[in-house]
Design a protein around this nucleic acid. Structure first.
Length: 588
RNA sequence: CGGGGCGUGGCGCAGCCUGGAUAGCGCGUCUGACUGGGGGUCAGAAGGUCGGAGGUUCAAAUCCUCUCGCCCCGACCA
């Protein structure tokens, strides 16, 4: 492609509103252009990168035995009603009605396609002999995000590869899952992405049934817990706090004592007023677990993990109680709840951290009053089985596998594999006859990849102060040919010849044929980040040489003009398959 | 949904508090000349309903009210 023929509107300055590197660089290098909050045009250069990612995904899906199809983005609302996901998605589901003659048709833009594919499979798959089968598509998804942000990382319209496996047995599901898991590793490896696969919430099947593929990145919206010692990694919802045995401090128990804490209803306020630390406090939360109140005790500096609490309580639904319920349960205004002397008899769950707190401070269940010298073992007599891991992992917590210290990292979720079980096949009657002539719901798995996030996530971690650094596998073009003097006929003739030869050799080449100064071309070259830059200038041409430079190297090298196309094609060929050169570069 | 910020030629900004002349600067764009290895120089030019509506005033980019849009933090996220 010739630069003067395509549209690459590079920008010298950062547009207002872009804050994170991938967003800034995608705008500045003319990859994308915003249409509205959460919706972007992919410009020619951006589209090429997106297509490369898509192609890698497609190739690896095919290689893993998945079969591509294409479902419509337009879906009938009835499907979503059958699985109860109209409510589950809420406002995220983009729905509308259209008039057709004398009736109204209610539809939704697909935010994902479990319903559509399960409905499809229910019509055509009815025997265990037809399974396993894995179907996938690469298609635009629509979700009315509450808050689109970070450029292409969180949008209301995005490109997703979604695959679904249909299996006759749990063992077969496991096999499909493993195939997809392995394919994902290959995909992200080929994209040159540094990623972690982390354990995620596993839903109905439980166990090892869900993994997220995460790109550790400063600006990631998700948080993962990671153990550098043994490699354990899980997202924050799922990560367990390892046990390190009770270490109750060996200090004498103080007497219970009420202290006045007027208007101090938060941990921070109480700490300031009583000059204590959050670690000394007991945070008392009132939840509604399946419409019944539940009191949860945590150390003052800890964050509740509602998933863990819900499971420990054996409840289906869990939400913080409304203020009127809290007042009824505790007999005090919100902010002064404590485990001792609750107004009503409600079940209590306690986080294990509190096995290590002596002489704690907590709400007195009286307005403007806290109690000091609280010792749960003495003052509350809570059964041992009411103690559990109920909180989010914090940095430095022991790893549940090896006990070493874990670290927390922000990350971008780029892929998710999930054993679904029979949730959708049951509600949509996708059943099959097994070899014993028994009717069973099909066992499903689903596997998603955010294609846009591959591109944005890669850029987020692979750039320098000058611009993007693409691996050959995702780069919009593999080679950028830069003739120094467009006005000089001899130079341009050589450039055009080399351009044609490279194209003929199957190299994706962009020629910067603009009549611009060297500085402009070099700056743009660095900004758009094409992996291999070839400069044809008077310097080298005199000696029959031209200059080549990998975007991630600091020095250029000279190669012979004679046979240059073949040399370059070979270099690109190697890098295309291994990304060795890209991955070996020093990261910033 | 709660909190904060911003809308002024294509892009980035100043002007607004304290109302007043033709709305200014840098980049980009166009024409011409010189130039030609890291965003050049000179000369000239085009391009703006100051997000929109209403109001106050002799007079509004500037003050007031409403509204639309965008961004950030938090909540939420199958």
């Amino acid at each position: 492609m010739r630069w003067t023929q395509t549209l690459i509107p590079t920008m010298k300055e950062t547009p207002e509103g872009a804050e994170i590197p991938s967003h800034i660089l995608m705008l500045r290098s003319g990859l994308i252009s915003q249409v509205m909050a959460g919706a972007y045009t992919y410009m020619p250069l951006g589209l090429r990168a997106l297509r490369k990612a898509e192609r890698i995904v497609r190739e690896e899906m095919d290689a893993a035995g998945a079969v591509e199809l294409l479902m419509p983005a337009l879906t009938p609302i009835s499907l979503w009603e059958q699985t109860g996901r109209v409510e589950a998605f809420g406002d995220v589901l983009i729905q509308f009605s259209v008039r057709r003659q004398n009736r109204k048709v209610q539809m939704a833009l697909g935010p994902t396609h479990e319903e559509v594919i399960t409905d499809l499979v229910s019509r055509y798959v009815s025997s265990y002999r037809q399974m396993p089968v894995i179907l996938y598509q690469i298609q635009t998804k629509f979700r009315n995000e509450e808050r689109p942000r970070f450029g292409v990382l969180r949008t209301s319209e995005f490109l997703m590869k979604d695959a679904y496996s249909f299996n006759a047995s749990v063992e077969s599901l496991d096999e499909s899952y493993d195939k997809m898991y392995d394919a994902y590793c290959k995909i992200f490896d080929r994209c040159g992405i540094e990623y972690l696969s982390v354990e995620a919430e596993s839903g109905p099947i439980g166990g090892d049934a869900s993994h997220e593929f995460m790109i550790p990145a400063e600006n990631g919206e998700d948080t993962i817990a990671y153990c550098p010692a043994c490699g354990y990694a899980a997202n924050l919802e799922r990560a367990e706090v390892g046990e390190h045995g009770s270490r109750m401090p060996d200090v004498p128990m103080e007497e219970l004592q009420d202290v006045a804490t007027p208007d101090a209803g938060t941990i921070a306020q109480v700490c300031e007023m009583l000059d204590c630390k959050p670690e000394q406090m007991i945070k008392t939360l009132v939840y509604m677990a399946d419409d019944k109140p539940l009191v949860v005790l945590l150390r003052g500096d800890r964050e509740a993990n509602e998933g863990k609490i819900r499971r420990a309580a054996g409840a289906e639904r869990l939400a913080l109680a409304e203020p009127d319920i809290i007042e009824k349960v505790t007999g005090a205004p919100v902010g002064f709840a404590g485990p001792i002397g609750l107004a009503t008899d409600v079940p209590i769950l306690v986080d294990r951290d509190l096995l290590e707190v002596r002489n704690a401070i907590t709400g007195a269940n009286k307005s403007d009053t806290h109690t000091k010298g609280v010792n749960l073992d003495r003052d509350c007599k809570i059964a041992a089985d009411r103690y559990a891991d109920l909180r989010n992992v914090a940095a430095g917590d022991p790893c549940p596998r090896c006990g070493q210290k874990m670290v927390l990292r922000n990350a971008i979720e780029v892929g998710h594999v999930f054993k679904l079980g029979t949730k959708y096949s049951e509600s949509l009657s996708a059943r099959f006859l097994d070899d014993k002539e028994q009717l069973n719901p099909i066992i499903m798995g689903c596997y998603g990849i955010g294609v846009n996030r591959i591109v944005a996530g890669l850029i987020e971690n692979n750039h320098d102060k000058f611009g993007i650094i693409w691996p050959v596998s995702l780069a919009p073009y593999e080679v950028l040919l830069v003739p120094m003097k467009v006005g000089d006929e001899a130079t341009m003739q050589l450039a055009d010849t080399l351009y044609d030869e490279l194209k003929a050799a199957g190299v994706d080449v962009l020629i910067d044929d603009r009549d611009a100064r060297a500085g402009v071309k070099f700056k743009d070259a660095d900004l758009i980040g094409i992996p291999l830059r070839i400069v044809l200038g008077p310097r080298g041409l005199k000696e029959g040489k031209l200059e080549i430079k990998w975007r991630w190297e600091s020095e250029a090298e000279m190669i012979d003009l004679e046979g240059a196309a073949a040399t370059i094609a070979e270099m690109i060929g190697e890098e295309r398959n291994s990304s060795a050169c890209f991955q070996a570069r020093p990261r910033n």
